[in-house]
């Protein structure tokens, strides 16, 4: 698990943990649907995440909107999922970016909280292998055709490498930032 402090948001550190080969996605999703307060996480489907920046931009927007009392969804964690979306449809954003019953690679994010407690709770409840939250691992697990479809942007193929990805990332971040305007 990684502890990330975003510049300018020192009061709201993030606890981020990437899991590969998750077996109990259905269970995790059910906890969210039931509103189980012990599972207050943003569970993202890692196959639609382009890069670290992509995820962190969504976190920044969600926390900033929370600080300004502008949350469109229930809490800051669901707002992170919603922030990833280029449009205003909340349930669609959950379907696309949130955990689904078929999710294999899952990124769990919690805003604030005690690091040790979160780590033990996550490792106890998520049946998967913890992985490093890095651009390289995300590149391995991401599904470029889905990202291309969601953001309507040409992301190239895996062989196009870094440059095409960076180009796409800049546009993706821009459309996320403009959402709701």
């Amino acid at each position: 698990m990684e502890n990330i402090t975003l510049p300018h948001l020192l009061e709201h550190p993030l606890q981020v943990c990437l899991f590969r080969n998750v077996e109990n996605a259905t269970f995790l999703r059910q906890q969210l649907l039931d509103g189980n307060t012990k599972f207050e996480y943003a569970f993202l489907d890692a196959s639609v995440l382009l890069s670290r920046k992509h995820v962190l931009a969504a976190c920044f927007r969600a926390i900033n909107d929370m600080l300004n009392d502008r949350l469109k969804s229930r809490n800051v964690h669901s707002e992170i999922v919603f922030s990833l979306s280029p449009n205003n449809n909340i349930s669609e954003s959950f379907r696309r970016f949130g955990i689904t019953n078929e999710s294999i690679n899952v990124l769990a994010i919690k805003v604030g909280g005690d690091a040790a407690q979160i780590e033990s709770h996550l490792t106890a409840n998520v049946k998967g292998q913890p992985a490093v939250f890095s651009d390289e691992v995300l590149a391995e697990v991401c599904d470029l055709s889905r990202i291309k479809k969601i953001y309507r942007v040409d992301v190239g193929t895996k062989s196009d490498g870094e440059a095409a990805r960076k180009e796409a990332e800049a546009f993706v971040l821009g459309s996320m930032a403009l959402k709701g305007s």
Partner: peptide, 10 residues
């Protein structure tokens, strides 16, 4: 330069 973050209210 690309847009990384934005807050039109603020």
């Amino acid at each position: 330069p690309g847009v990384l973050g934005l807050d039109w209210e603020a």
